[in-house]
Amino acid sequence: MNNNVIVIGGGPCGLEASAQLHKMGYNVILIEKDDHLGGHLAKWDRLFPEGIPAKELLDQLTGNINGVKYFLKTEVKSINLLDKEYNVILSNGITILAQAVLMASGFDLFPAQKKEEYGYGIYDHVITNADLENYFKTGKDCRIKQNPQRIGFVHCVGSRDEKAGNRYCSKVCCATAVKQACEVKEAFPDAQVYCFYMDLRMFGRGYEDLYLKAQRDCGVRFIRGRVSEVAEDLNKQLVVKAEDTLSGKPIKVTLDLLVLMSGMTNCSAGTRIAEMLSLKRDEDGFFTCKDTIFSLQESDKSGVFYAGACTGPKTLPDTLHEARAAALAINNYIKNKE
């Protein structure tokens, strides 16, 4: 019997799980559809709560996978169960027989243009959280003016929004928004920053301090209420209408830049593979775990495992925990099989 394990997705989750499985002595094959490893992490600049550079973490993760075979720009063409082993055919023509498959396919960002009322793709100065990270990383984005005076953040874009089809909370956007609000204030010290939120879910260790810092040190104004619509005036400035639910009054703010905190949805490339295996998905589109407390890493098909954001929005530490837990679960499964 071979000891092949296939890991689908080369983001932080896939990298960590591969490294752990490799250490356990398995022959790990990592498949990534993009031309680089790291997934969303590779596009991010700094991480909450302390603002550690994303690159540091990425380097650490990629440094640990020495000896793991990985294929870039490769997708799964077909996958099926052949007598307790999974037969996987890749788009580069390679066929692999594997003992177990780990879905570490992660998430897609909610396409912000779907919330057309916020004007992403229509107005000149509307960007997403990912665009802003890219700006911090590269210093380039033609949508961000020389010296913006007023900057707004819209929380929960495509999250907790039944009309957008996503009823769930994306978990990381609150902390990301507060982190980015502070960073943007550091980048443009003259700017006034607003955050339009429904609830602030600063649940993690150090997150609350970040929130206090944003208010105390950066003077970020937190406005509790949803943005109803955004318009553009003749000067290409954005007129944002919202409701301040704490004072019970509708408000109107003119801004130079609006940042939409796009939430998470299940990765479309991952769901395509899941369909070949007829894996169960919940109403929210994420994969269904075997149970919701005890066996988070197991799927409804034996030999297929989950880790990371493919089973719901997760923070990076959560994802890395799950990657290690999945490695352990796979180890137990293969040992039992033998």
């Binding site: 104004r221 406005i223 409701e243 301040d244 509708p250 408000i251 109107k252």
Partner: peptide
């Protein structure tokens, strides 16, 4: 910066 509008539901 932020002007409250007395009108109900905008």
């Amino acid at each position: 910066e932020v002007t409250a509008n007395a009108a109900a539901h905008g």
